[in-house]
Design a protein around this nucleic acid. Structure first.
Lengths: 237, 237
DNA sequence: TGTACATCAGTGAACGCGCGTTCACTGATGTAC
DNA sequence: TGTACATCAGTGAACGCGCGTTCACTGATGTAC
């Protein structure tokens, strides 16, 4: 049974895409809490009730934006990392890590509202449905895990030794490690978390304006230097 | 000219405090964007226009909350660090750093809404007035700077060497270092930033629920382990 | 100490606004025979 | 290929709601003489 796409079908998917695009722009201009179906309808050039043909509720529109945001971020990151591999091979994990980090930062600065929706203050009264959100939401950590794991496995990075993990934590991380395919030990999982959090901490401070006014080249150099320190924390040189 | 406090004066300061407390609770329940003067007035048991005797506008109420939040956080951090010094003397910078970190985390988890107001997505359309916000907003970094600097100076911590900072960054950080009294070099300033960002990245992920559901002892152990890694990044052992 | 006036907290009505969502409807597009 | 029916996008009116802010007011509290 070959699927047929009628003009109506095509119009529908196009309208859906337009709705998401409009919502994204409004998010950027006024924040998640101010996102309104009526405003989207208005900009779409359609009466306010018509929007319900496409989106069942305001919360659903938010979910659409969340999924779209995670996906775009992951695609930006993947594209950057894979392009780097294309060019230089897989031999330089430090460069890959920096590429990944800069991709996150660039994306966040370009679309701070969506970045905030994904990594900032939760929207009050809204909880993203895990079954739609988990898969796209974990793509970046998984890529990060891949980069670090390859380095740890082939010896390009050596985890600095610290005090051993407490047992509760160790067992929890060991079972979590299964899902991540690669990192061999709980210590690696813990470090992965810390690197992840530190990276997004750096980006969040800049995107949310916590640093105050730094001019662009300075901010960029500071971030780059931060990536070096974080990499060193993970034993990457 | 001795100041007299009439009953009216006392009533006023008390009402002001009550307004801030109510606003803080509403922030917690519904988020910054939903904070409304009318709702505060309602809960205060007063007609909606009466609130204007105390707060000139909604934005001003937000500023009050921001200042109050920074101040309470700084006081929690200072109290924890100073209590630690009281007990153990000043000789253990690693313990002081961990104390500081845990104080930030505990405070953030206890009042996630205010934490989000200070360190999360900016409230759309609102910009905190720097002249009221800067002083309380920098207290925690300054304390962090103090802890790290003491360690760097007396040799308890040694900054790992990395590639030299680019010139733009170095000169910017050198001039910034003046304001911070202590860290002798631009490299220290850069590391201070990274530690600061990494610490708040860790806390933000947990407060904002990015980690998903971890039970309490696990989350705590993971955080504690993260602090160790961050400290190591700064050369603290 | 007592009185006249000024200050201030709180009232109640009103303004104009935008929101999410429902509903019965019209007319165009698609489908089955 | 032509017709009858079903599906769907979009309309327009309406619902009940909460918001920030202004204004003229009343009555209690504070201050100066």
């Amino acid at each position: 049974m070959p699927e047929k796409f009628t003009p109506r079908d095509r119009a529908r998917t196009q309208t859906m895409a337009e709705i998401v695009a409009i919502a994204r722009r409004q998010l950027l201009e006024q924040g998640a809490a101010a996102l309104s179906l009526r405003a989207v309808a208005r900009e779409l050039g359609v009466v306010s009730s018509a929007i319900y043909r496409y989106v069942p509720s305001r919360d659903d529109l938010l979910t659409l934006l969340v999924v779209d945001g995670y996906t775009r971020l992951a695609e930006a990151v993947d594209a950057a990392v894979l392009a780097h591999r294309e060019k230089h091979g897989v031999s330089d994990p430090m460069a890959e890590f920096k590429t990944l980090g800069h991709a996150v930062r660039t994306w966040g600065l370009r679309d701070p509202a969506t970045y905030g929706l994904l990594f900032g203050t939760p929207v009050p009264g809204y909880e993203a449905p895990a079954e739609r959100t988990n898969a796209p939401g974990t793509r970046v950590v998984l890529r990060l895990a891949e980069v670090l794991t390859m380095a740890w496995i082939d010896g390009a990075a050596v985890l600095p030794e610290g005090s051993p993990l407490p047992d509760v934590l160790r067992s929890e991380l060991d079972s979590l490690a299964q899902e991540f395919a690669a990192p061999p030990q709980a210590d690696h999982m813990a470090m992965l978390f810390h690197v992840w959090a530190a990276l997004f901490g750096l980006v969040s401070f800049e995107v949310f304006g916590q640093f105050g006014a730094l001019n662009k080249p300075v901010a960029e150099a500071l971030f780059d230097n931060g990536l070096l320190s974080i990499a060193a924390m993970a034993g990457l040189k």
